[in-house]
């Protein structure tokens, strides 16, 4: 039986819908946006480093809460499907195991893409709040809060009147509301000062590759989480493995640096370097310092690195899942 795009599409849509209806996913996304909006107000450190601190903070939020989401969506999706036996109910239909596994993963990527878009918009907006060189604009912070409140308020009304799922509507309305808030700021700035609107646009364009890079890293983490969920569907076990992977991946770069000094170009160094993905490669904060942008060639190489690791994890996961008995 050939690959059926309509069935794959149905599985992806179901995966996204089921994930977005989980209140914890909405909670994490809303908290991330609010923290990003409040970040300029929270920088106690001065010496002209505010912008960098704000951006470092938002990127850290993106990476860490994104990693949490990658694990949570995988566990709430594939993990619960295996524990609750919904996977068996789907796989006794004309659905291949690989189709089901990969469609579930695509669903995780879609949720992460929506999350990343929200964070990118919040980051562009929060840049408008506290850049010292242009003067603080606290109203921009209020606009972010208003956008979040509007998304939740409208979903509440829809839920009250039509009984539609609150969490799903809120999650879909958040990027729309944030996008509208950004448009509002641009129009306002265009009327008052064209140069200021240009700065907002330039900031957005400059940050986009950086958020794209973190998203690529999150894709690898999601693939790892999804693969682990195929084998260890219990949440605490999966969380343990994910934490280990995250910590090892973060400490890989300094470890290699240390060892290189002692044993130059040794096989051990090379082996460790290829044993697991290094998360520091997806950390663009330094590249964004002093108004610089992330080189697109670096983004290209990072995409290749990310796709290679993702493909590796998914191959292992597909093989595990194909062998797994669904009792």
């Amino acid at each position: 039986m050939a690959f059926r795009l309509d069935i794959f599409h149905a599985l992806v849509v179901q995966s996204v819908r089921e994930s977005l209806r989980q209140p914890v996913i909405l909670l994490v996304t809303t908290v991330a946006i609010l923290l990003a909006a409040l970040m300029p107000f929270m920088t106690a450190f001065q010496f002209g480093e505010e912008n960098r601190l704000v951006m470092d903070g938002i990127l850290a939020l993106h990476f860490l809460l994104g990693a949490y989401l990658a694990g949570a969506v995988s566990q709430l999706g594939l993990g619960l499907d295996l524990q609750g036996r919904a996977a068996g109910l789907i796989l006794c239909k004309p659905v291949r195991r690989a189709e089901f596994f990969l469609a579930r993963f695509t669903g995780v990527l879609v949720v992460l893409a929506l999350f990343s878009f929200c964070l990118w918009t919040a980051a562009v907006l929060s840049q408008q709040i506290g850049p010292l060189e242009h003067g603080e604009d606290e109203r921009a912070g209020l606009i972010i809060l208003a956008a979040v409140a509007a998304a939740h308020g409208i979903s509440g009304m829809i839920n009250y009147r039509r009984g539609s799922p609150y969490a799903e509507w809120s999650f879909f309305l958040l990027p729309i509301a944030l996008g509208m808030a950004l448009s509002f700021l641009l129009i306002r700035d265009l009327r008052a000062d064209v140069a200021s609107a240009g700065r907002v646009l330039a900031s957005g364009v400059r940050l986009l590759p950086a958020f794209g890079l973190v998203y690529l890293g999150l894709g690898v983490l999601a693939a790892a989480a999804h693969t682990l969920a195929a084998r260890f569907s219990s949440a605490p076990v999966l969380a343990g493995f994910m934490t280990l992977l995250l910590v090892l991946g973060l400490s890989l770069e300094p470890l290699i640096h240390e060892w290189r000094g002692a044993v130059a170009e040794s096989l051990r160094v090379m082996g460790i370097a290829w044993l697991m993905p290094s998360w520091s490669l997806f950390w663009p904060a330094d590249a964004l310092y002093a108004g610089r942008s992330l080189p697109l060639t670096y983004l290209g190489w990072a995409a290749l690195y990310s796709v290679t690791w993702t493909a590796f994890f998914l191959s292992v996961g597909t093989a595990w899942f194909a062998e797994r008995e669904l009792g």
């Binding site: 039986m1 179901q14 819908r17 089921e18 209806r21 989980q22 609750g84 036996r85 919904a86 068996g88 109910l89 006794c92 239909k93 004309p94 659905v95 291949r96 799922p165």
Partner: peptide, 20 residues
């Protein structure tokens, strides 16, 4: 896979998606 298009299965536990 193809023959499963002609089979219907009701499991012992309902195993449905609770949010749908």
């Amino acid at each position: 896979t193809a023959i499963r298009a002609r089979i219907g299965y009701m499991p012992e536990e309902s195993s449905l998606y609770p949010f749908l």
